[in-house]
Amino acid sequence: MPESENGTPNVSAPATPGTPGAPLFSSIRVDSLSYDRKSMPRCNKCFSVESLVSSPTCLIDFPRPDVSLTRKLGAEFVGTFILIFFATAAPIVNQKYNGAETLIGNAGCAGLAVMIVILSTGHISGAHLNPSVTVAFAVFRHFPWVQVPAYIAAQVSASVCASFALKAVFHPFLSGGVTVPSISILQAFMLEFIISFNLMFVVTAVATDSRAVGELAGIAVGATVMLNILIAGPGTGGSMNPVRTLGPAIAAGNYDGVWIYLIAPILGAVTGAAVYTAVKLRDEVDAPPRRSFRR
């Protein structure tokens, strides 16, 4: 037994029965929606003139993540399934029961679904739930390009599975959950672009900026989704997400205006991420950290 300097043995106090050997809460802060703010080194070569000649290995030079890709894809599949099922079920129930949900109910279901999925799986997969988010993160080097196809495949397959589950449960009312524009094509495109811009602007803030309140990412993003649907729901269905439209369209066989929902959200998301990246405070600016309600 080791002794102290005065010759007396060091005897540690026995653990209290029922007390875990490790602390209940780790001091490490994990933010939802973020691949890892500190583990994703920026590669300035990717956007430089030299990259046209030197061809840096931007597709493979990311550190090995702590979570396996299989677990990430599993969490992304389950999270996207939950989102599509409940976000699509609300307008279906609204149609079946003669307006029981209302527009506020539809928006609330989608916002709550996003919030609970981010809070429950954000630490595993980042809870993208949306190909637009995945692509925008990859464009600005917050997510590795090599994982983008796998993430999108998981999101699309989850959307299709959720849509056919809805078809089995609510047939023949699935058409109520299909996002179809009730306004002109140009208006629908612009509306989906703007709400996707709004969504990704907020996502980029809470997921990539250490000064933002990252612990509240689920609430912030869920509230943004709800706000967007309250405005765009009557005109376009408030998709913001290619798989929110694609899965129900496949299950219902209704592809009216589907290209709008495949292109506008991606363009809007990339633009939203670009604008926030342009306006956010730089590391060299001595700005006080933002406080969250957990501190």
Rank of each mutant, 00 (worst) to 15 (best):
S4H: 01
E5C: 00
A13V: 12
P14W: 07
T16K: 08
G18D: 12
L24M: 11
S26L: 13
I28V: 14
I28Y: 10
I28G: 06
D31G: 00
L33Q: 09
S34E: 06
R37Q: 15
P41N: 09
F62L: 05
F62H: 05
E76K: 05
G79C: 09
F81Q: 09
F85I: 13
A87Q: 08
Q95T: 02
A100R: 10
G105T: 01
N106E: 13
A107Y: 07
G108M: 14
G108Y: 11
H123Q: 14
H123V: 10
A127E: 05
A136I: 13
F137V: 14
S157V: 15
A158K: 04
A162S: 06
S163K: 03
F164Q: 09
P172L: 12
P172K: 03
L174I: 15
S175I: 09
F189L: 12
N198G: 10
N198S: 14
M200N: 14
V203W: 08
A207P: 04
V213D: 00
E215V: 05
A217E: 07
V221W: 15
G222C: 06
A223Y: 08
L227C: 10
I231G: 04
T245F: 01
L246M: 05
L246G: 02
P248A: 02
A251D: 02
N254K: 04
L262T: 05
L267T: 03
G268E: 07
V270T: 00
G272A: 11
G272W: 00
A278C: 07
V279N: 00
R290H: 12
F293M: 10
R294F: 15
